[in-house]
């Protein structure tokens, strides 16, 4: 789960300066564009119905009829890979949205509240942070049951504490900033100050981090599907495809390799672009 890794690595201002070469960013951008198009209009790119089984066409090797071959039920692997983009992006965006929203709420309460509120919220966060993200997601799934939406919530929920910590730290900084104190002395209402000044300034760095977190969430969601806790069987979902493909790895290793490559390249592209965004927001330019 690299969402936490990113936040952990980024919090104390230990940002890696040189990340990748420029061609990397361009490639990442192109790949991600393709993924977004695949997610929005999969039918445009996919040559076939990703769910159409063919009992006499299983385990076909890549060829003219099936560019990437077929799976154990004779479904077209390329089409399934393309249709797999949507659940992955929904997982990444949805879970990150839950994490950021929950984290911002908790972080602001802690950062702007009195000592008792702050203490209570931070202890709660400490408790939740003491359990590794994946275990936390597993607990949430046990509670809600399996399935795509529950896995999405589980991944988002598990990311809340990390975001909450960052928002709280930012809120602390912003709160003491001269312009906020000035606004306070000018008699502007507290809610207005929070809404107009604290929130945007505290949340901006979080949003930048969150773009990288999307990649982590995609990976985490795929992990849950790999463990058999996420997407349902016939659906085209990368983690699920990989888990099933692994069973047939001695028959056709492509069945596992293709979804594995898809999820890895997506996470990688999101991370590359996210880091670029962060670099720009911090006023640094690429080399």
């Amino acid at each position: 789960m690299s969402a936490l890794a990113e936040t952990a690595a980024a919090v104390p201002g230990t940002v890696a300066r040189r990340v990748t070469l420029r061609p990397g960013r361009i490639l990442a951008g192109l790949f991600l564009t393709a993924i977004v198009v695949a997610a929005l209009v999969p039918a445009l790119l996919a040559p076939q119905d990703p769910l159409a089984i063919s009992t006499d066409g299983a385990f076909l090797h890549p060829g003219a009829a099936h560019l990437l071959g077929t799976d154990e039920s004779g479904r077209d692997t390329l089409s399934r890979m393309i249709y797999g983009a949507r659940p992955s992006l929904i997982m990444g965006l949805g879970a990150t949205a839950i994490g950021v929203a929950g984290g911002t709420l908790l972080g602001l309460i802690a950062g702007l509240g009195n000592r008792i509120t702050e203490g209570a919220v931070m202890r709660l966060i400490d408790v939740v942070l003491s359990v590794p993200e994946l275990l936390l997601a597993l607990v949430v799934i046990t509670l809600l049951g399996t399935g795509v939406s529950n896995a999405l919530f589980a991944v988002g929920f598990a990311a809340i504490p990390a975001y909450a910590r960052i928002v709280r730290a930012q809120a602390h900084i912003v709160r003491r900033a001269t312009y906020v104190e000035a606004a306070g002395t000018l008699g502007i209402r507290r809610v207005t100050v929070i809404w107009r000044h604290v929130l945007p300034n505290a949340v901006r760095p979080v949003l930048v981090l969150a773009t990288i977190g999307i990649g982590g969430a995609i990976g985490a969601g795929a992990s849950l599907s790999f463990l058999g806790l996420g997407a349902k069987p016939p659906a085209a979902e990368w983690g699920d495809m990989l888990s099933i493909g692994m069973q047939y790895i001695s028959n056709d290793w492509l069945l596992a390799a293709i979804p594995g490559a898809a999820v890895t390249l997506t996470v990688l592209s999101v991370t590359v672009l996210g880091r670029e965004l962060r670099r720009r927001s911090e006023g640094r330019t690429g080399r």
Binding site: S2, A5, E6, A16, R18, V19, T20, L21, G24, G215, G219, A220, A222, S223, F226, G239, L242, M246, I249, S250, W253, A256, A257, G260, V263, T264, V267, L268, T271, V272
Partner: peptide, 29 residues
């Protein structure tokens, strides 16, 4: 620096189960 951070980036972006599977395929299967 670029090369090593590139490798690091790929590794942090690869989900554990994909990385493990890759190692399994290459070194074992």
């Amino acid at each position: 620096g670029s090369l090593s951070s590139g490798v690091e980036l790929v590794l942090t972006s690869t989900p554990t189960f994909v990385l493990g599977l890759l190692l399994l395929i290459v070194f074992s299967f």
